[in-house]
Structure formats: C-alpha cells, structure tokens
Design a binder for these strands. Structure first.
Lengths: 221, 221
DNA sequence: ACCTGAACACCGTTCAAGT
DNA sequence: ACCTGAACACCGTTCAAGT
C-alpha cells in the first residue's frame, strides 16, 4: 500500500499500474494478486493510508473550532497526496473503510451544537460533504492531455466571455481568472484557493450555527 | 456525444468504451477519432450535455432562493445521469466548458447578497463547491466489483463499531446506517439523501447570509 | 504461503489505405 | 471529408507450475 501510494503521488492515478508497482517491489505483476484482490483495492488502501491520522490530532475547544479543524485537517491530508483527490470523491461516498474516530468526533461536535435525531443525521451528512467537497474539487487534476494547448484553450474560452450576454461574469472575470472553480486552468496544488477555503469553513460553521438555532425554536417533528 | 451519454447512463463510466460506442454508431472504432480526440473528450462532452440547461430555468426571487435553485438544479441534472458523478468532480474543477449563464446567475445573486471584491471571489468558490460537492458525493458509485459481498463487508464493518472507543458513533449508528456518507452501501440513486441535501442548501445559504453581514460590519482590507 | 512465467482478454489509439 | 481494416502498445487479471 505504501509503495502504491508513493507511485500515485509521483506519477498520478491514471498512470499508476500494477506492472509498475510490481517492478518497484521487485516481483512479478501476478505476485501482487496474492496480497490484494484488484487495482481498485490498492487505490482504496492508498487513500486509507493518506487520510490516516486526520483524526489523530484534533484540538479541544468549541464545537465550531473542532468542526473547522476536521475540515481543515482533511484538506491538509489530501494536499499531501493531491493525485488521490478524484478517487477520494468516488471512494469515500460509500465506503466501509471509514475512520471511526473521525466520525465520532464529528458527532460529538454536532451534539454540542444542539443537533439530535433526524436533524443530527442531516447535519452529519452536511459536515462530511463539506469536508470532502471543497478539497476534492480544489485538488482534482486536469485531464492527462498536453497541458500547454489545453491551458490556451481554457484561457481563450474565458477571454471570449460576452459582456452583453454575461455582464457580471465579464465584469469580474479579471479577479476570477485562474482563481475560481470552472474558470481556472491551474489546479489546487499549484494555485491553492486558500482564502476561498477559509470562506468555505466560515460559511459551513455559520450555517450550522444558524440552522441549529432555527431548529431549536421550532416544535420537533 | 448523445450516444456516448446514453451508453454511460446505461452501463456506467468504467465499462463505457470506444469500441462499444462505435458499434452502436455502426462504424469502426477508428472512425470516432475523426470527430473526437480521445475518450476523455467524449466523457467531457457527455458531461456538458448532461449539465446543459441547468441555467435555463432559474427562478426570480431573493438571492437566497436563486442560489438554492442553482444548487438544487445541478443536483437534479446529475441525478438524471448518476454515472457521470465521479467524472464531474474531476472534470468541473478546472474546465473551459463552463456554462457562462449559470456563473453569471451565481455572481448576480452574490452581488445582491452584498459580496464584492475579494470576498466575492471567495463566495463564488463557496457556491460552486456547494453546488458540486454534495451531489457528486451523494451520487458517486460503488466500486465495480461484486456488490453482494462488498455490501456484506460494509455492513460488517459498520456493525463492528466499538461502543467503548466510539460511543457516539455506536449510539447513533442505527439512524446513520446506510443513510449517511461513509456509513452507507447504497448509492444516491437507490437511496437519495434528500433531507440531508435540503439541510445542505439551508446551511450554505444561512452561512452566506451570516458571512455577508459579518463582512459588511468590518472595515475593508 | 508466496512467487514465477506465461498467457488471455480487453481497450485506447494510430495509420496507411480506401472512397 | 470521412471511414475501413488492421495492427500496436499497454494493462488488468488468471492460472498452472514452481519452491
């Protein structure tokens, strides 16, 4: 798994293959299958390895601080292995390899926030989606093709925005160019969206605060 | 592109291949390459086709309603083509095929919400991440392997939660089982996380409201 | 128990040749 | 301009045979 993770970190997911892994391990490709059932299982193992330890050093403090730390910690772990980002999105959605400690921390924070019953389940899903959503999107990589002309095509498309049909987009394109989702050609490793991410954490925490207050004023269903 | 989208919807992304597409089109595989440079381009085209029209019918109303409609509309479009979800996550991150009308709508709503300058860019990234994050995670599919034993492994892992080490997880596992990210084996097509998604929309909108109020009380940087 | 050696099946992509 | 026909390269996976 460690060798797989190292190879993915080095070359990317698309070019990671069993034969290369076998070479670095000094065995024949078929030998891998004695230890692991499939390539997918190797990727899943690499993900588990990469995200291991997010739950290890979580701070004390208010539930707001603790939830923010979970979301920031997940992003930090993924930033160390950015090529895993696309796999994480599809892998973590339905996954038996969950980190029980991390999930327990999330639940503890949400209980402190005042969520219970069905609202707690909803809030849990909100936090997990918030944890995965921004970071996987930020770090997912461009297609494997030649980046030079692809970047040029991106820039061309962006610079061709019609100020009559899309006035606000045209007005703000200067500050959005290569600094916003869907309008960038650099990925999150080269060009981190740090302030956007902090806004994200802020919005999620404030939103949970506000929703919790709202729910506690209404009669339970 | 339509044929590609139809094939992906039918069989899934992993088993979608050029040869099958050529067969349904009644041509040799090599003929595809006259019209399209690569398999990736076909997937990207299918995504563009699937997400086309999200911006078409957006309602009038408060900025809160309009942003919620964007996030809901994106999920609805993706629900019609769930097999695309994993590709969307990596594809939309850096993408020249953006829908200018949709982005213009988002900017208009955020201007109405009082965001400007650098804070507007951050808020834009928050909204796009919110739009993509929950839906792609909810709809991303399980690994291609045999689902029967895989489901059993998931359930087994969940039912083996240790109530001593993870008391809150153990306490709530009954309501989280197969209804929460990382603790489910069904995917979002079979088992939609509707109430979680509505909580998500609520949290994001409330968070943006709260953040906007906060920013306007502070001196500009 | 764990690995070798070789093979199979599949698939993206290329290319010279057709019309 | 667009497609055929065939081939190449690559890769996940299997399996009988080794030790």
């Amino acid at each position: 798994m460690q060798a797989a993770l190292a190879l993915i970190d080095e070359k990317g997911l698309a070019t990671f293959n069993i034969r290369a892994l076998a070479t670095t391990l000094g065995v024949y490709p078929a030998a891998i299958y004695w230890h692991v059932p499939s390539r997918d299982a190797l990727v899943a193992g690499a993900i588990a390895l990469a995200l291991d330890g997010v739950a290890a050093h979580l701070p004390q403090g208010t539930w707001q601080l603790r939830l923010a730390a979970v979301i920031r910690g997940f992003r930090a772990a993924l930033r160390a292995h950015p090529f895993l980002a696309p796999a994480v999105a599809s892998e973590l959605a339905t996954n038996a390899n969950f980190d029980a400690l991390l999930l327990d921390h999330v639940l503890a924070a949400l209980e402190d926030a005042g969520f219970e019953g069905a609202a707690l389940v909803d809030a849990f899903n909100v936090v997990i989606a918030a944890m995965c959503g921004f970071a996987t999107l930020e770090l997912s990589t461009a297609p494997a093709g030649s980046s030079a002309e692809w970047q040029a095509a991106c820039r061309g498309h962006i610079d061709a925005i019609d100020p009559v049909r899309h006035p606000r987009l045209a007005r703000h394109v200067g500050s959005l160019r290569d600094r916003a989702f869907m309008l960038r050609w650099s990925n999150g490793s080269e060009q981190p969206l740090d302030s956007g991410f902090e806004a994200w954490v802020d919005v999620v925490v404030r939103g949970l605060e506000s929703r919790s207050r709202m729910l506690r004023r209404l009669p339970r269903v």
